[in-house]
Nucleic acid binder design. Sequence first.
RNA 1: GCGCCUGUAGCUCAGGGGAUAGAGCAUCGGACUUCUAAUCCGAGUGUCGCAGGUUCGAUUCCUGCCAGGCGCGCCA
Length: 558
Amino acid sequence: MSVLVRQKQELVSALYTAIEAAMASGKLEVESVPEIGLEVPREKQHGDFASNIALIMARAARKAPREVAEIIVDHLPKGGVIRAVEVAGPGFINFFLSNDWLHDTLRAIEEQGEAYGNCQHGAGEKVLLEFVSANPVGPMNVVNARAAAVGDTLARLLRAAGYEVGTEFYVNDAGNQADVFARSLEARYQQLTNADYPFPEDGYPGAYVAELAQVLKEERPDLLDLPFDERIAFCKRWGTDKMVEMQQADLRAYGVEFDLWFRERDLHAQGALEAVIEFLREKGLMFEEDGALWFRSTQFGDDKDRVIVKSDGSYTYVTADIAYHYDKLKRGFTKLINIWGPDHHGYIGRMKAAIQALGYSEDTLEVLILQYVALLRDGQQVKMSKRAGEFITMQDLVEEVGKDAARFFFLHRSPESHLDFDLDLAVEQSNENPVFYVQYAHARISSVLRQAKEQGIAVPTCSQVDLSLLEHETELDLLKQLAALPEELLAAALLREPHRITRYALDLAGLFHSFYGYCHILGEEAPLRDARLVLVSNIRVVLRKVLGLLGVDAPEQM
RNA sequence: GCGCCUGUAGCUCAGGGGAUAGAGCAUCGGACUUCUAAUCCGAGUGUCGCAGGUUCGAUUCCUGCCAGGCGCGCCA
């Protein structure tokens, strides 16, 4: 249990005791005592912790909130860690504590290292996180980059919260788009020797297809000897494999590794689509109409029923996706989280219906919808047109602004917000760029520790120093921020809000820079110097940890 | 028409049933012979889109409306 939670519980039980004592003495009369909430106030002057219990109880007690608060405070046990209690505002009870409880935070960090803040909340739950899943027919875009950052960090957060997590990229290499891509590639191949060879009407115009055709020509100069159908089949397999390799390289450069790249074509090869259709048919959830086979998804709340086998005998996208999700479930995952782009929200209903049809509860599947990303340059939105080839890819973005800035910017905003990504700001090597601000805090501490070492000063452990010497306001603020990590990390994981960690990192860095402006370390007398060395080296551990969660480097010097 | 997201300071965005609604940027003024000035210290800024409702208390929850973005295929 975290230091902060333990301290809260201690105060809550003190409040319970006080309320019971007040009731026993007849000062307070209520049917039952509500659950007591305690929070860290936004304003420092409102104490270390505050409770609104008197406001909540006022009506039942038939007294003014402030009066209730006064009665509770009168019955609170005095002394111990509670330095002062006050009734404030409309009836808040504010607690001011002695600083001792904060020191346990440093001991916890020292003991646990970068595992500090982790917990076992999710123990026993197996979560599958599927994200990006961009079609292997073209370069990834900036929404894919956003999804990669959010998904990867969410996976790291869930693991830190004790969940067993698998990450997957679903490769849609068997559908319509893969066919179109194969025909585009084949046509470009033909055009290498016959400039007049027609390009498919709906083909992919990007230059990358022609470049791939060149590579293909070198690898398979004899391709045209094959019959057309076999040639297309080869192009489909070879081409999508190449695109997957490129996606893997882009994502690796971005710090994202998937546990599994799941091929749609494997589902087809295994007969998984037929199997899941049969399963649903036996449950009476399939019907034929207009020459097609339909899934009665409306039975599970979907807007309309969905075609599973088209009238031409081929499958729709959703058919393979149902088979894929069935596969996930059969592998023992108890929670499926999918991260999709904004154009897919209409797809949620049918997939939730499918999950229920397969015999699982609706909330087994959780879908996070990301919103669009607008790129800004010179304050203007960058217009993109796939057709005209004016298109900023994920690769372009990462090359232009770097992995750290790209990830940090995407993780700076809540996932469901529309995002303006300022390209000029992201590349700026200056104080305006928030990612540097956090990294700089880490580098500064590293520099101090480096110089301490050069001077022959070892970083002591908590037990070797007097932590009560840490009493400057900025030092206490830092200790409180460090104490807040466990709760913040769990909240970020449970609410699926990685941007909380970005904010935490910025706040921690800000408090450190402020401390650094007021307090010296190496120049101080040994006892204070040593206490501060303990403080900053533990701050560095936490900075490294949160940057690690964000997938951003923690440089030793800048 | 239906559904989803968004609307908070000049800009980009946090926050969230409770106390005086916050941060960064931009603007202005200070701080380097001392551990990295990519930093710090100080200063101004609000119809929380609009209107109702619930509540002791709403910017937060509910309903309606307005505005912007997106989606509603036998495409993926």
